[in-house]
């Protein structure tokens, strides 16, 4: 990306990401991931799949799943639709990069700043999620991802490591409220 003169703020409106540790749980704001949504065009499914796999190096995940490989990650978000993630520093213009790869076989929309991402780690993270979401968190395996209600907001929960490492994607504008809810739940089980 060319240099420009605007400074970025994290979703929690800070210059640097906020990392909160409560008991054994760490809640880390992570603005260093670029996100784009990728949707397949009707009638172009085969071409779409082939082009997406060529970009990512792996097959797009099935409903309820997420895949990670190299720089790229993919999360199923709806029928025929995925979120792709990649490091922000190298992929700030992720939408253009993905669009170049899938051409008119897919629709691509920049989503990087539509979401706040919190990475939650800790051996008792499951106890915290029990207080936040109806997801059966104890049965969630690494590579599973789903969207459900947390703090009245539709949030994606991605299991990175069963029982101890999760990412939560929530509406960026509500980052402070979501963070507050996560911290309170962590305190309740600390």
């Amino acid at each position: 990306m060319p240099e420009h003169r605007l400074k970025a703020l994290t979703p929690l409106a800070q210059a640097r990401p906020v990392i909160t540790t409560v008991g054994r749980i760490t809640i880390a704001e992570n603005p260093d991931v670029a996100l784009a949504s990728l949707a397949q065009r009707r009638g172009r499914e085969a071409d779409f799949t082939q082009r997406a796999e060529a970009l990512l190096g792996f097959a797009l995940p099935a409903p309820g799943h997420a895949v990670q490989g190299g720089d790229w990650g993919a999360i199923w978000t709806g029928p025929g639709q995925w979120f792709l993630e990649a490091p922000f520093a190298s992929h700030e213009d992720i939408a253009a990069m993905v669009k170049n790869a899938v051409t008119d076989a897919g629709s691509v929309t920049e989503q990087t700043d539509a979401w706040v991402r919190f990475d939650v780690t800790g051996r008792n993270a499951t106890e915290m999620f029990e207080r936040l979401s109806a997801i059966d968190i104890h049965r969630m395996q690494a590579g599973q991802a789903t969207r459900s209600l947390i703090e009245h907001l539709g949030c994606y929960v991605i299991c990175r490591e069963a029982g101890s490492r999760y990412s939560v994607l929530g509406m960026r504008s509500a980052a402070a409220s979501l963070h507050h809810a996560l911290v309170q739940a962590a305190e309740a089980v600390a």
């Binding site: 949504s37 949707a39 009707r42 025929g80 639709q81 929309t109 920049e110 539509a114």
Partner: peptide, 15 residues
């Protein structure tokens, strides 16, 4: 259902 249309909210992505 057979229209080739894809939708997504971008309200939050842009200031």
């Amino acid at each position: 259902p057979d229209m080739d249309v894809q939708l997504i909210s971008t309200t939050e992505a842009w200031a």
